[in-house]
Amino acid sequence: MNIFRLAGDLSHLAAIIVLLLKIWKTRSCAGISGKSQILFALVFTTRYLDLFTNFISPYNTVMKMIYLGCAYATVYLIYMKFKATYDGNHDTFRAEFLVVPVGGLAFLVNHEFSPLEILWTFSIYLESVAILPQLFMISKTGEAETITTHYLFALGMYRALYLINWIWRYYFENFFDLIAIVAGCVQTILYCDFFYLYITKVLQGKKLSLPA
């Protein structure tokens, strides 16, 4: 474990908690893409199948359970408890256009052709594009609540910090996972546009609104 990976995990945890609290406190999921949240729940489910069979550390197990629990709780709040506030008209990104190609790629490009490893690879590829429905929704509505932009910033920073973690592990642990690195680069690049808006607008106290 290094400081960059820990910072990344804490940033990821913060994002997940901020989103869950936002929906719970405001009793509304307006502006939140339910499709992205379903994709994240799928990412954690396919990545953490070895939760009970492959013990890494108490930290690893606890964090995986928190991620899984929060992901499903968020999906539940969006599609059941606060369904009336779900903005389905703007959450129209065709998620199947992500899941199918990612599924095919996971079969073709992986470290080992075994069920667990293919599902892990699927989760890595899917995570890199899972935020697209959310970013697409914001571009359609033309704006985002400030709390939602903080959620997205923390979520985007988590994988950016992981990129630094992989550089660190390459030099100090001789660890190198090309699949995770390439997917992590794609994932972080998708946030660049948002990062620019977040830093130039939200951090200046303005509301994030896109030129519609």
Binding site: R5, D9, R47, N60, M63, Y67, E112, F175, D177, A180
Partner: peptide, 10 residues
């Protein structure tokens, strides 16, 4: 190589 498949990251 085994390290690689023993994914220790979240």
């Amino acid at each position: 190589r085994q390290l690689m498949l023993n994914h220790d990251e979240l």
